[in-house]
């Protein structure tokens, strides 16, 4: 019924304001090959414990975030703008 997500831009907001895409995985490079793409599109871990996910603050700042949460306890350990680490990676 309720939980609060610490949006780095908006502060604590209820989960109803967000859209969840799933595991935060980097997009393979265009020439990564068929296996890498198949993995990326279809295969997912389902960990019990820490998981990074893409959440979109749809009814807030409309930024895509990476929410680090525990799938068992639901504790959110970190929440950052997805553009920040992506910039560092590329």
């Amino acid at each position: 019924m309720a939980s609060l997500v610490p949006c780095p831009h908006c502060g604590l907001r209820p989960k109803e304001e967000f859209t969840i895409k799933g595991a935060a995985l980097p997009r393979p490079s265009p020439d990564a090959g068929a296996d890498a793409w198949l993995d990326h599109v279809y295969l997912r871990d389902n960990p019990r414990g820490a998981l990074d996910e893409f959440w979109h603050h749809t009814s807030g700042c409309r930024r895509w975030l990476i929410v680090s949460r525990d799938t068992f306890s639901h504790e959110i350990s970190a929440c950052r703008d997805a553009a920040d680490p992506a910039k560092e990676r590329s």
Binding site: M1, A2, S3, L4, V5, L12, P14, H74, I76
Partner: peptide
């Protein structure tokens, strides 16, 4: 008692 210390 819900996640994020929200109480119903």
């Amino acid at each position: 008692w819900y996640d994020g210390n929200v109480f119903g």
